[in-house]
Design a protein around this nucleic acid. Structure first.
Lengths: 231, 231
DNA sequence: ACAACTTGCAACACGGGTGATGCAAATAGC
DNA sequence: GCTATTTGCATCACCCGTGTTGCAAGTTGT
């Protein structure tokens, strides 16, 4: 599922590929810092170089898992140019790594949506801007964004938040006459997500603005002729 | 993962989860019959009960892998009500099983599309019918259909075929005035696939006809108001 | 410069999934 | 009914990925 890509997908199951040693021992010595881990500011912060290593690993993980969701820790480590044990030092388990990746990307995602002022800007403007911002994020964080159905509460919460923000935006658009009065908002939101995903797939990456125009245009007008008496 | 779902998706990589023993020994005794395997009509055909077993396994595989793409052979065997070794007897490797499943479903898929006479029926009629038929297949063969990017040449070929059939249908629709004259056909096809996928996700499964109407309607009209002077 | 921290490397334990076999019992097909 | 096929079961070998440890060498920060 490879699977199922969040802001554009919504497939249900989506199991994390490969987790053999799930019954292995527990970490005896947890990593000191808390790389993108949240407000748990208990432990001593990482040294500068270590912090850099964490970022390098996360970026490598995104690239590697993006190509192959079942990639091993070894492959990720190689892509990051570090030893496998170092990856384990920073992320106790594979799950922890994927989780951290999801949190990292999800935060950027939420920020990108918020930056478009979807709650206050005129519906059409907000729609274009949100689309462009999200596309920019999805371009480089495809895998991480596919972890929307993460077990991580923060990730889940943010996505739920964005989801409702999106539906509120659509409701405003409808009230403003941009969307038809009888639209099925949940369905439309799903279609919108799917269009964004579709646009993000375009390898011949155009600039986010052109793609955003394409997405919004398609969402609003569809592909049919203006008003033929079809049916 | 769910992953990337063929007739509605198109995500590139999509690796098959979990393939540890890839360097294991080779099968010493290949299964006699060729379950959905193609024209290689060399070996003796399977006995009736064995043929039935093959079908049972494939159905169980679809159900099981649909819930969890990383399900083990053991789980699939259990779902099929047979011993794990029996599964291995019919499908030498896990890959072979998934492959056979993909071929099986893909053929039904192609048949469903063909049954809608997409090349000859009036564009709008063909569009509705194709959509309804495909949705009916996708409802029960979600996992198998997600294997579109299979390495299997037959699967790839069929999907490429359907792809072009679809684009030809769109071209006819455009020429008939159903689609705007300036539509980007590849993009529209992608959107169409995405809409079908989106519709297939609806758990509150409605009948294929209602969903087909929703999909076609959305594709043609979009969600915007008829013709406001937006922009 | 010195102490604390970080990394690479080599080695190990572990568990799980895969695939192979042989045999006895059940079943299909003629 | 007889034979060939099929299945379940009990085993076994194997490989791979994960997670742990200990230590020497290199880096950071003060």
């Amino acid at each position: 599922m490879t699977p199922p890509y969040d802001f554009a997908m919504e497939t249900q199951p989506q199991a994390q590929p490969h987790t053999p040693g799930k019954a292995g021992g527990k970490s005896h010595r947890k990593p000191p810092g808390n790389p993108q881990g949240g407000p748990a500011a208990g432990a001593r912060p990482l040294r500068a170089d270590a912090e850099r290593t964490v970022a390098t690993i996360l970026e490598a993980a995104e690239r590697t898992l993006g190509r192959d969701p079942a990639a091993t820790m070894e492959q990720i480590a190689e892509a990051a140019g570090v030893a496998r044990t170092t990856v384990h030092r920073r992320f106790a388990t594979r799950e922890a790594l994927v989780d951290a990746l999801a949190v990292w990307a999800t935060r950027r995602f939420a920020a990108a949506v918020e930056a478009a002022h979807p709650e206050t800007a005129p519906p059409l403007v907000a729609l274009y801007q949100t689309t462009a911002n999200v596309l920019a994020i999805k371009a480089g964080w495809g895998f991480a964004m596919s972890q929307a159905s993460s077990s991580n509460p923060e990730v889940a919460h943010i996505h739920a938040d964005v989801r409702s923000t999106c539906e509120r935006l659509f409701a405003r658009a409808r009230d403003a006459g941009v969307l038809r009065a009888d639209v099925d908002i949940p369905w439309t939101r799903g279609v919108y997500y799917a269009l964004i995903h579709q646009a993000a797939q375009r390898k011949d990456e155009q600039d986010p603005d052109a793609l955003a125009t394409l997405v919004v245009d398609t969402l609003l007008r569809g592909a049919g002729t203006p008003h033929p008496d079809r049916l």
